[in-house]
């Protein structure tokens, strides 16, 4: 297994970016919760691996109303933050997985086609967060939704968002250590008063729910409208039939909390 893999362990963010270069042939090991089993089982056979454990990319920085979270920050380090991100992080996996899993890994999580993954993504989308990453063409800062649509060969450095006026998170209550959350909705009333909603577990990556946002003043109508924003996944964790019944409920609950 992986005998010929070149393993790099950069000891600073700059060294990590330099070692990553333009990506391409580099497999990133953040917390390892996704990638290490893939390597163990031979699904991924890296030529070159970048272990970020000592790269100094972790930390939550709150200066004024701006929150910046390093890529190697553990999910458990987020669990005390305000909704939607805090409760969303606390809902992920179990305490051991949360200690090990990282924000960067969650934003880059790729499950087999059609299986939703990346529990934190919905909260970041709802917050209107931006991702700073490096790779071909140098550093890039972009909205998290844009990053999720085009994230091959990128090394995440950090994620930034402005503290919202209010936030809420609701999920299907089900033990799911081994699986990403079957369905969850994050919502935020941003600093400018606008409401943003996003679902995790509905589609392979998080999706924004613009039709539901447009109906935000009527939580019941918004719940129904949300169904028009996403083609719901049907998988072993939850059928599309079930997701279709739960999504409106979660949207309604989130909007009721946002008030």
């Amino acid at each position: 297994m992986a005998e010929a893999t070149e393993v790099l362990t950069p000891d600073s963010p700059e060294a990590a970016a330099a070692a990553f270069g333009e990506g391409g042939d580099v497999t990133i090991i953040g917390g390892g919760t996704i990638m290490v089993p893939l390597v163990t089982h031979g699904v991924v056979q890296p030529n070159k691996a970048l272990i970020l454990a000592d790269a100094g990319l972790e930390g939550v920085d709150q200066s004024g109303t701006t929150v910046t979270i390093g890529a190697m920050t553990s999910v458990s380090a987020l669990s005390e933050l305000d909704a939607p991100l805090g409760p969303c992080a606390a809902n992920l996996g179990d305490s051991e997985v949360r200690d090990q899993a990282t924000v960067g890994g969650n934003l880059c999580a790729v499950a087999p086609p059609e299986h939703p993954t990346g529990d934190l993504q919905g909260a970041f989308v709802a917050l209107g967060a931006s991702v700073r990453s490096t790779g071909a063409g140098g550093e890039r800062i972009e909205p998290v939704a844009d990053f999720l649509a085009d994230r091959d060969n990128r090394l995440v450095l950090d994620v930034t968002y402005e503290q919202p006026q209010a936030g809420a998170f609701e999920s299907l209550d089900r033990p799911h250590t081994h699986h990403p959350t079957p369905l969850a909705v994050s919502g935020a009333r941003l600093a400018d008063g606008s409401i943003q909603l996003a679902a995790t577990g509905a589609a392979p990556t998080a999706v924004r729910l613009p039709s539901a946002e447009a109906e935000a003043s009527d939580p019941d109508a918004a719940g129904t409208a949300a169904l028009g924003d996403v083609r719901l996944v049907d998988d072993a964790v939850s059928s599309a039939w079930y997701r279709e019944r739960i999504l409106p409920v979660l949207v309604r609950r989130v909007l009721e909390q946002l008030g």
Binding site: G31, T33, H41, E96, H178
Partner: peptide, 25 residues
């Protein structure tokens, strides 16, 4: 694959899934 917990050990005092941990890390 991190889903069962049978491999949990303490790494520097904290419980950690040994199957999810690359030894070089």
């Amino acid at each position: 694959a991190g889903g069962c917990g049978a491999c949990t050990v303490l790494v520097d005092g904290a419980p950690r899934r040994s199957c999810l941990t690359a030894v070089a890390a």
